Amino acid sequence: MPPLLDGLRILVLEDELLIAMDVEQLCRDYGAAEVVTARQLTEVDEQELPSRFDAAVIDLMLGGVSTLDFARRLSRAGMPFVFASGYSNPDEIEGSFPDVRLVTKPYSGDDLIEALAAACGRAKAA
């Protein structure tokens, strides 16, 4: 059985460097072909997102800036993603993104990978 993220190209939006590095390594360990991390939304070229990436892991706040508008654009583009955040009010997320998993920090690597794989249609959501 191939790894859960086998061959996928993943975008990681995370402003805490150590967490970003951990998530990048996790994705690679689970077979991701490419993992790109960005610490600010300004580092992301939205025009190339759907063609360059298969899925994304998004922190809800990057340097104090909400990523919800960015997530809405991803959703409209049909790009699967999960939220990974220490954000403590999931109601706003569930209201705007009922089908998107919120993996709360501190999270286990398995939880994050399973949520991401499920978003990509590769595994059953827990």
Rank of each mutant, 00 (worst) to 15 (best):
A55R: 09
G95T: 15
D59P: 06
A32K: 09
G63H: 01
E16S: 10
E114H: 11
R52C: 08
R101K: 14
R76W: 07
G63M: 04
D69E: 15
Q25H: 05
L17G: 04
L112K: 07
L116V: 03
L11H: 05
G31K: 04
L17D: 13
K105P: 02
A33M: 00
L102K: 01
G109H: 04
T42E: 15
S85W: 00
L26A: 13
L112D: 02
L68Y: 03
L62I: 01
L68C: 01
E92H: 03
N89K: 10
V36N: 02
V23E: 13
L13Y: 08
L102F: 04
S88T: 13
L60K: 06
G86K: 05
D6L: 01
L74Q: 10
M1G: 14
T104N: 12
L62Q: 10
D15S: 07
A115L: 00
D99W: 08
C27K: 01
L5F: 08
Y87H: 12
V44F: 04
A32G: 01
S96T: 13
A77L: 11
E16V: 15
R101S: 15
V44T: 13
P3C: 03
M21E: 13
G95N: 14
L26T: 11
F53R: 10
A20C: 07
R9S: 11
C120A: 12
L62H: 11
L4W: 06
V82H: 02
D99A: 14
P106N: 07
I19H: 04
S75E: 15
V57S: 09
I19W: 00
L41I: 11
R9P: 09
S75H: 14
E14R: 06
G78H: 11
D54Q: 02
E92M: 12
R28F: 00
M79I: 14
L8D: 12
L4C: 03
V65D: 07
C120T: 09
S85E: 08
R73P: 06
I113L: 03
A55H: 09
G95I: 01
I113D: 05
L60F: 03
L13K: 01
A117M: 09
E46N: 03
I10T: 12
I10L: 11
G109Y: 01
Q47H: 14
C120F: 05
D15R: 08
F83A: 11
S75G: 01
M61A: 04
D29E: 15
E16C: 01
R72I: 02
A123D: 02
A20H: 08
P3K: 14
P50E: 10
A118Q: 06
L13V: 13
V100L: 02
S96G: 03
F81N: 02
P106T: 05
R9Y: 12
F53M: 06
A32F: 05
V44W: 08
V23W: 09
Q25S: 10
D59I: 06
E94V: 13
L4G: 09
I93C: 04
